[in-house]
Write a protein that binds this DNA or RNA. Structure first.
Lengths: 335, 335
DNA sequence: TTGTACGCGTTATCAC
DNA sequence: GTGATAACGCGTACAA
């Protein structure tokens, strides 16, 4: 096996009978080369299978074209779709995505950001966890753009995209009231991420303004299984809830399945359910779940346009608030 | 905004009062540095926030540490989980994943592989589509490892990991017969990917050996919606199937929902269903789908161990056949 | 063990 | 429009 023998601009130049610089210019958009030279170069390049070395180019230009995506629970429908949207957007912008998984451990995101720095990524986009302040400072110092999505970080520096979780929660309360529900519940995981907690607090607050108490239950990791357990806990109560707001759609799916098959409840007859994320499964006939759609495409566009435009000045670093749109389906009465 | 000012080994050397090569050696595993020098270097590096430039290192070593993952439909549960497993495995092996989305267009995978070459990726792993022969040749010529997963390519060169789809299909026929089913159907998409077609052909073949005909229907893209349409087509037939093998779980979920809610059929009473992939949703109470689990972890381990070990010699390039394990749930009678 | 000198493939700069 | 040259940050023979 010939181990890594790539063809260089030098070889192309020799074969084309021109200088190295001519080759370089041919592959640099906007450089001036005569049609004749360009033709000779392209011909030689094709024959040899030449491809510009982005490692070397990045070294020269101080711009690798790499954008680092840092994420946990990549297997999850919402995350996967967000990653897809981001990579798509990055590719059309001429960038390339580097994907780093994190786990629940503390230094995990920090390690990922260090990796991004080592590869001189043009930017890092954090979708999970929270980097330590020392690391965000490091990114800033190195002039590396840092984007936090749904992290709700209030320290200055990185660019932030957040959702109006509290406003969404308020909408749910209104909808539940209109459906005639009186026993409100909130089903959450124990993850304690900013967006999840914002939904919880917003829901409790909005309900309180209407004179209603909310029963809150938290369990496990944010997923289907936790939703089932939460249903068991909440639906066994003496005062059984007639409306539940689940922090995510996955929780809601588990909740609905348990409610129907273990408690024989009808939805929305006995119980109204609202979720969050609008993952594909929410629209499946078995669930038909009313939920909030995250503006994934817009999140992706906003993030990437930032990189392209370069960092705005420090004073313009207010977090961007995006709006979650309620998608009405049949898991809640009325409209 | 300070635009991309990274600290170099030179600066660390100056601050530590040593030569630049001492810094280099400190960060090169297995190089010989005195404890005292190492300490001084690390101290200066920490203070300055130094990180080795992997672009430059890759340039020198002719080994970037980057592995390119080429995939379509990344938002899909199975794909997302495979990507997660692969990135996890790559990270523990000290590599980093570069993610490239492809669409359905012909040259899409080729373009992705070219991008991989430009970044001098150590290897490319193709999970979707089929690269043109000229491109696979290019990868081989450049000494870039190429791994095809479930692509069922029979041309020599790239490393291949395939599943025993035909054997799995045979198992399904047996199970259906044991459940007393006589009217067999196969629900497929129009994607026509190798694994999907292998399942279809294997199913028809195995059924034929038992003297049974199979009604085959194909529609749309491999997903939930197509499953619903396929159910409408297959369940409206005069001789209604009492057993259907769906090419993937997503198709099966759509099929089941339509069968139950539009045709009021009971599963497995009126209809037995088997899927493929064992995505998380298959285990959800609403589906409880009997399906084949793809050995995702093993696929990931095998792929990455190949890169680590380096390319085997040409003669050892037989495709690796992995086994799909049937996961018994309640969408089929008997056991 | 340490430092010096060179090369990796590319682009930017500057004469021509 | 073209070609020579320096520089990017790093690894590594080589000599000390």
């Amino acid at each position: 096996m010939s181990p890594k023998i790539f063809v260089s601009a030098q070889e192309v130049a020799e074969r084309a009978g021109v200088s190295r610089s001519a080759v370089s210019r041919t592959f640099t958009p906007g450089a001036s080369v005569s049609p004749e030279t360009r033709r000779k170069v392209m011909e030689a390049a094709d024959a040899l299978g030449y491809h510009v070395n982005h490692l070397a180019r990045g070294l020269m230009r101080n711009e690798s074209g790499i954008v680092c995506l840092i994420v946990a629970d990549l297997g999850t429908p919402f995350r996967a779709n967000l990653i897809k949207a981001l990579t798509d957007e990055l590719q059309t912008a001429g960038k390339v995505a580097m994907l780093i998984n994190t786990d629940r451990s503390d230094g995990s995101v920090d390690a990922a950001l260090r990796q991004a720095i080592r590869y001189r990524a043009d930017a890092s986009i954090v979708l999970s966890g929270m980097p330590d302040k020392s690391i965000t400072d490091l990114c800033m110092k190195n002039g590396q753009t840092l984007i936090l999505i749904n992290r709700d970080d209030n320290r200055p520096g990185p660019l932030r995209i957040n959702l109006d979780d509290r406003e969404a929660a308020r909408t749910v309360v209104t909808a539940f009231l209109r459906a005639g529900c009186r026993q409100l519940a909130f089903a959450n995981s124990e993850a304690g991420t900013p967006s999840l907690m914002a939904r919880e607090h917003g829901f409790i607050l909005a309900a309180g303004e209407q004179g209603l108490e909310v029963v809150v239950e938290r369990f496990g990791r944010t997923g289907y299984e936790a939703g089932r357990v939460l249903a068991q806990r909440l639906l066994m109560r003496r005062e059984r809830p007639d409306a539940v707001f689940c922090a995510t759609d996955l929780l809601a799916c588990g909740f609905m399945d348990a409610a129907r098959h273990q408690f024989s409840l009808s939805i929305p007859g006995d119980l109204c359910v609202v979720g969050f994320d609008d993952i594909e499964q929410a629209s499946w006939t078995s669930y038909d779940l009313t939920t909030f759609g995250q503006p994934i495409a817009e999140i992706a566009r906003k993030s990437v346009s930032w990189l392209a435009a370069g960092m705005p000045d420090d004073e313009a670093r207010e977090p961007v608030e995006l709006h979650a749109q309620l998608v009405w389906r049949r898991s809640i009465r009325g409209a």
